[in-house]
Each structure stands twice: as C-alpha cells, then as structure tokens.
Amino acid sequence: MCSNMATEKQDPGHIAPQGFTDRALDSAVTLTCWVWFIFGFLFFFSWAYLAAAVLAKNPEIHFQRLNYHFFRIFFRVVSTTAPRQKFHIDDKIAAIRSSVVVCNHLSYLDPLLLIALFPRQKTIVKPRFFGTPIFGWMIKKSGYLPASSEGHFSRMMIEQMETMGSYLKAGGNLFIFPEGTRSRDGKIGNLNRGALKIARMCKTPLYVLQLHNTDKLFTPGKFLFNSRIHNDISIKIIDHINPDYRYNPPSTTQLEQQVRQAFSANQM
C-alpha cells in the first residue's frame, strides 16, 4: 500500500481531455484489475484458501490474512497501472487493533481498501453476497457477518456475535460503513447504529475514519475505472473514541452523536 506519496501540482479530480486513448487506458486498467481478481485468485490464492479451509484449526484467521494480502496486491496493481492515482494512507491506521472502525462509504473500492489495511478484519456484508458461488463461501469462512438475521442468517449472526468479543480482544478489527450504502454526493447519510451497538456490547474503542476520492477512481454506476484523472485517494483517522465503559458507559445515541460530530467537523 502506498503511503504519503509525492503530491502532484495538478488539482485532484482534474479530468484530462477524453478521447479514444483515454477510454482505452481506463479499459486496460480495469481489465488488469479484473485479471488479478480472477487469475490472481485462481493461480496464486485459491490453493491457499483451500488449504486453510481443510487443514487450519481456525480457518477464519487464515482467510482474513489471505484477504489482506490479496487486496494489498490488488492495490499495488491499481497504483502501478494507474499512476495518476496517489494513495495517502495515515500510517497510524495500520496500527489499529481490537477496535470497531467506522468509515464513510463512497465506492465499492472502500471495503477492499480497508481489508488491505487490517490483517485481522471482519465486516458486515449484504446478505445476497453470501449466496454467490466461491465469494459467498469465502466471506463466510472469513467470519464476516450478514447484514440480516432473517431465516438461515440468524444462526450465522448468532455464531459471529457470540465470538465477537473474544475476536476483538485478540486484536481483530470490525470495520463497518454505518451509512450502509455508498454516498452519491459525498455527504454523510443516516448512520446505522449496528457498529456502535457492537462496540458498546463488546466494550471496544471506536475509530472514525474518513475516506476521500475512491469514488473518483471507481464511480458508483460506472463499470470502468476512471484512471485518467489526477486523483488523491486518502484515508485518515478523524476520531478515536475510547469510552469509559466501566464507570461511565455511553449510550448508543451518545456514540452516534460523537461519530456524526466527527464526520460533520471533517466534511469537505
């Protein structure tokens, strides 16, 4: 993962004149990333996932580490093939452990970026993804939680919540996008309180992260990466909430207010 790379003089988001070459470049970058997704997984990672599933005592840990390495390489592929994309990652983020991490959500790249930052990571995933071949199996084995407890998801949710406290205590992170969906205008939407409830229940500190400009590279509703623009993708810690759970436990509402305040104070 790139960190504090040299900044360019050109404005972030500056769009170069669009022509056939630009579109071809976007297509090439997108295709390269898909090639890594499919063939990188098949040739380099699938055997490791299989070995972890069959041989490991605790496959969850191995699956999370494999996800971490897979997406770190993915972002190396992105920054190599799209050099106009500069990644600025707050160095302190990689040191976060045993925490619930909440972050604003701009693009499908966001969860991948957070997986690439935390070797032990869990997140909440839309239920429909659990039904997809291979990917559904992988997210289940990784210990990710379904965003539903209806029907057969109730058992999965209960199993995951029963072990969440020990997972967090052992150094794992749970990252969540409390808006639930990608923001189309960059503004913070309604916050789902699930992350805050989990933090409160497990008596865990919270980190509030803010992401910028992943949507400029991979815009919601578009298929191709927008690799032609000069773009600074950044992620930084904007608040660290470490409540006194023993003597002054906060309510979920108080935590929500604090998170919202952090986002509002850092709104662009």
Binding site: S148, S154, R155, E159, M161, R193, G194, K197, I198, M201
Partner: peptide, 29 residues
C-alpha cells in the same frame, strides 16, 4: 429501531438477570 444486534444483547441480559442459565443456540435462534 430494535435490531438483531440488540436482540443478541438482550438475550445475554435475559440469561444473566432473569433465567440464570445460558441459552442454547437453537433457543437463541
């Protein structure tokens, strides 16, 4: 606005303060 996470937390409190024993996974489901 009571959701599944609340339900799991509430079950923990029911075990502790009302039942005095742990619920099985089937009972929680």
């Amino acid at each position: 606005g009571f959701d599944s996470i609340d339900a799991i937390e509430l079950l923990g409190k029911i075990e502790l303060t009302i039942l005095g024993f742990s619920l099985t996974r089937e009972e929680k489901e």
